[in-house]
């Protein structure tokens, strides 16, 4: 029953958000009909746009999973952006330096290094929380802000490719790039990695003792302490896992699309990952459609801005409306009440 309720709420939320997006387009576009059409149909109109949309969903799936993992253990990891960015730097750095290595080895090392880097960063916040009750929400965020500057510093300075003409790292060996799918779009084999990781964590979450510990701790920490579940360990572990997924999300674009790291390439993957997790209600498998939805909004707005005259930030407005309403308990009853009142009068 409450699962159906949740679905209705999600549908209403997305509906309201889209209506607000359409209104924004109507107000600002000189050819609103075309803009709206491009927004909704555009991402499906050819393999290029379609592939790009799926490609854009890959990091969102991973950050979405990262967020839902932490949230289900009641650890509020708000530092996904920094963990992602820092993980990507470490992985890219190694990939560039491992130029002579066999491709498969270099890719594996680079991916694991990114995950490790992200995991350690998030783990610090988890450790501070477990050790001294430092609010993990704020500590992860402050560390994230710090890291974005640090990474930018490297991309502009020590790890800059002078020929790039912008803040970007040197290219890695092109053999290290993940295979493309639906060329010429950006879509790459990373999508399979993301889905495999999601399925793996789904089983961890549902069937393993570690998953059990996380879920129980997330629902009621007092009860976990009382039962003898090692709560501190669980919090640190879930922060670590969350951070390492963020790190993985960071490297995947560089291995799949760019072949190097460019300053500011993440278009809010971290923050949107949080929204994705909320839409999915922390369910690992539902993260996939939720990430696709966000990627669709992003791509729709991009296509519409190319083919028509809207500002792509429309996507951000729609996304934030979803954010606003997704946890609103009162939404269904509110709408239900209004409808009933409407019938009465």
């Amino acid at each position: 029953m409450h699962r159906i309720n949740g679905l209705i709420k999600t549908a209403i939320t997305i509906g309201i958000a889209l209506v607000i997006g359409i209104i924004a387009i109507l107000l600002t576009s000189s050819e609103p009909g075309n803009s709206i059409k491009q927004f909704f149909i555009g991402p499906f109109s050819n393999t290029y746009f379609f592939g790009n949309m799926i490609a854009a969903s890959i990091p969102l799936m991973l950050t979405g999973l990262a967020a839902s993992l932490a949230f289900s253990a009641s650890a509020f990891n708000l530092g996904l952006e920094g963990q992602l960015y820092f993980g990507a730097l470490v992985g890219t750095f190694l990939a560039v330096k491992m130029s002579g290595f066999p491709a498969i080895l270099a890719i594996v090392i680079s991916i694991f290094a990114s995950a490790l880097a992200g995991g350690i960063i998030a783990g610090i916040s988890g450790w501070l929380k477990a050790k001294w009750e430092v609010n993990e929400l704020i500590s992860s965020l402050l560390i994230s802000y710090t890291l974005v500057y640090v990474v930018d510093y490297f991309l502009e300075g020590p790890f800059n490719d002078p020929e790039a003409g912008m803040a970007a790292s040197p290219y890695m060996n092109s053999n290290f790039m993940l295979p493309k799918i639906l060329s010429p779009s950006d879509l790459h084999a990373g999508v399979f990695i993301a889905i495999a990781v999601i399925i793996f964590f789904y089983f961890i979450y549902k069937k393993s003792t570690v998953g059990y510990e996380m879920v129980i701790t997330g629902r009621n920490r007092k009860f976990s302490n009382y039962s003898g579940i090692p709560v501190k360990k669980v919090i640190i572990l879930s922060m670590c896992l969350s951070g390492s997924l963020a790190g993985l999300a960071g490297i995947i674009d560089n291995l799949g699309i760019y072949g190097r790291m460019i300053r500011g390439y993440s278009t809010g993957y971290g923050w949107n990952g949080i929204a994705v997790a909320l839409i999915a209600r922390n369910h690992p498998l539902l993260v996939i459609p939720a990430a696709l939805l966000f990627a669709f909004l992003e791509s729709g707005a991009n296509v519409a801005s190319l083919m028509s005259d809207i500002t792509p930030e429309v996507a951000r407005i729609i996304q934030s409306v979803i954010f606003y309403l997704i946890t609103a308990e009162g939404l269904v009853s509110f709408i239900g009440k209004k409808r009933r009142e409407g019938i009465k009068t």
Partner: peptide, 20 residues
């Protein structure tokens, strides 16, 4: 709030001290 996890089912509550 301490002796049980109200949002979890009976099974999850019964195994909390012996799931491992």
């Amino acid at each position: 709030m301490e002796g049980s996890s109200p949002e979890s089912n009976i099974l999850e509550n019964e195994i909390s001290t012996k799931y491992f």
